[in-house]
Amino acid sequence: MNWAFLQGLLSGVNKYSTAFGRVWLSIVFLFRVMVFVVAAEKVWGDEQKDFKCNTAQPGCHNVCYDHFFPVSHVRLWALQLIFVTCPSLLVVMHVAYREDRERKHRLKYGDNCRRLYQNTGKKRGGLWWTYVLTLVFKIAVDATFVYLLYHIYEGYDFPSLIKCEQKPCPNKVDCFIARPTEKRIFTIFMVVTSLACILLSIFEILYLVGKRCRECFTSGHHSRHIDTNTMSSGSNLMESNSMKTTGKNTPETPAPSYSVAVS
């Protein structure tokens, strides 16, 4: 699997993400992808070869291993990383769609025409919903895989001794897992990083919703303030016009002549 190619694609998401989104990407690639590539595959690389049972019955070893490890941890985490990172590409695709619309609009109406988007990468309208839905999908994927890991393996612990009674084993046999403590540490580490990513995505959704509500409240308050100023200016203009009209209609009393004043 070419993780460098996936990292190169998702690096473009940084410029369209919030601060929480950038931290999320850092955790995914530094603490999940890098640990998965460098250490996890080596820890689980010999899990089937070093899974030992105290019996020589043909088929018993394979049946017991399949019973306790129905899905490999490495493959399960690989699926989780693919499903949790690919939705971020929807944001990049949506921005590319906006840029293509803007380019076609300029070709049709000229460079001096009114723009469709003031900023194609700004999270407004459909892009805001796309971004929020990708966050919801990431939370759902991480939560689902954390639950599957707990449900399939009945917890995150790896006991040193396992009792197996599956057929064709002749009786209850003892089986031993290779390096159970090391596997337990890496499993808990991957689960904790998944929970951290879930919390970051929740915080990012709350941040986006709160920011949007604040902008709507501010714009509504600003529009009401403009309407109030318009009404007050209109009333002042009407008062000044009425005063001018009253002044024009008032008759002026002529000054008395000299003879009238002397008499």
Score class of each variant (00 low, 15 high):
A4L: 11
L6R: 05
L6G: 05
Q7C: 05
L10P: 06
V13L: 09
N14W: 10
G21P: 00
R22E: 09
I27K: 12
F31P: 11
R32C: 15
V33I: 09
V33Q: 01
M34D: 11
V35P: 04
V35A: 11
V35H: 07
V35M: 11
F36H: 12
F36E: 08
F36G: 08
F36P: 03
V38Y: 13
V38F: 13
A39T: 08
A40M: 13
K42Y: 07
G45W: 05
G45R: 03
D46Q: 08
Q48Y: 05
D50I: 01
N54F: 01
A56S: 08
V63D: 03
V63I: 05
D66A: 15
D66I: 07
F69K: 06
P70F: 10
P70Q: 08
S72T: 07
H73D: 13
V74L: 06
L76P: 06
F83Y: 09
C86R: 14
P87E: 01
L89A: 03
R98G: 00
R98H: 00
E99M: 10
K104L: 10
H105T: 01
R106W: 08
L107T: 04
K108T: 13
Y109K: 10
D111P: 07
D111K: 09
D111G: 10
N112K: 08
R114M: 12
R114H: 13
R115G: 04
L116V: 01
Y117P: 06
N119C: 11
K123Y: 01
R124G: 07
G126M: 12
L127C: 03
W129L: 09
W129E: 02
T130H: 06
Y131C: 04
Y131Q: 03
L133H: 06
L135E: 04
L135I: 04
V136T: 12
V136K: 10
V136M: 12
V136H: 09
K138A: 12
I139L: 08
V141S: 04
V141A: 05
F145Q: 09
L149R: 14
Y150P: 11
Y150R: 14
Y153E: 03
G155H: 04
Y156C: 14
F158S: 01
S160C: 06
L161T: 13
I162A: 00
N171W: 08
V173I: 04
D174L: 03
D174R: 03
F176L: 02
I177N: 02
R179G: 03
R179A: 10
K183E: 00
K183R: 05
R184P: 00
R184K: 10
I188V: 11
F189I: 10
F189L: 14
V191W: 05
T193I: 01
L195W: 10
L195P: 08
I198W: 02
L199Q: 07
L200F: 02
E204F: 05
G210C: 04
G210K: 04
R212F: 09
R212S: 11
C213G: 07
C216H: 11
T230P: 00
S233P: 01
S233W: 03
S233Y: 07
N236A: 14
L237F: 06
M238W: 07
S240N: 09
S242F: 06
S242I: 06
T245K: 13
G247R: 15
K248I: 11
T250S: 15
P251R: 00
E252A: 15
E252C: 15
T253N: 13
P254A: 12
S257G: 15
Y258N: 15
Y258H: 14
S259H: 14
